[in-house]
């Protein structure tokens, strides 16, 4: 049994290495956001996606509010629940000040994460978080507009044989829809809260 397992894992490692090599050779660099231009170059939020109720939501619908945009997928057992729970904690800690902030979770896995799936999943963490999905093309356009990265990674030991690699940072936009800064999904909620308090309270 153990030998079989070792052989199987070796095959997985080899397959991953080969696929990874091809992927890098095939222009992985082009798909990366120009490393961290996200934090320096100014840009505006830009999307047209579908919410829980099947309503089309665009960035313009959120003008006048601060927006905290982050990306993920619901078949993600580790990073995404942690990110969602960080946002939920931040909202709780902000209290009334947090009413000026709208967190928006955008899926990078629209094939599985339909608006109905997001409607069931995202509010479990906090009902104030809006979950958005769309067609593969809409998500691709959104990803480019937000300068984020996502990629389907084959993984035999994952549901449906794949997982998604993706930018896990939170992107903060001001009430005019202009990009302000990023936070990391695994940052201490208290750090994010104290920074937001200065901005939202001002």
């Amino acid at each position: 049994m153990k030998k079989v397992r070792v052989i199987l894992w070796s095959m997985v490692v080899i397959a991953t290495t080969v696929v990874g090599g091809v992927w890098i050779a095939g222009g992985f660099q082009n798909k990366l956001p120009a490393s961290r231009t996200i934090s320096t170059a100014g840009f505006a939020a830009d999307f047209e996606l579908t919410d829980y109720k099947g309503m089309v939501q665009t960035d313009e619908d959120f003008r006048g509010q601060w927006m905290l945009v982050f990306f993920g997928f619901t078949n993600c057992p580790d990073v995404c629940p942690m990110g969602l729970s960080t946002i939920a904690q931040v909202l709780d800690d902000l209290g009334a000040v947090g009413e000026a902030l709208q967190p928006v979770f955008i899926t990078v896995d629209p094939a599985r994460d339909t608006p109905a799936v997001l409607a069931e999943y995202v509010p479990q963490f906090d009902t104030r978080i809006i979950g958005l999905s769309g067609s593969a093309e809409q998500i691709e356009r959104t990803g480019k507009a937000f300068k984020i990265y996502y990629q389907r990674n084959e993984d035999e030991a994952a549901p449906d044989g794949y997982t998604m690699g993706h930018t896990s940072s939170f992107l903060l936009f001001d009430p005019n829809g202009e990009f302000v800064r990023i936070y990391e999904y695994n940052q201490k909620p208290t750090e994010i809260v104290s920074d937001l308090q200065k901005r939202l309270g001002a």
């Binding site: 490393s35 961290r36 993600c76 580790d78 990073v79 990674n153 993984d155 999904y185």
Partner: peptide, 11 residues
């Protein structure tokens, strides 16, 4: 999670 804030998962 890499320096670009990109997270991924593998066995």
């Amino acid at each position: 999670t890499d320096a670009n804030g990109i997270s991924s998962m593998s066995p």
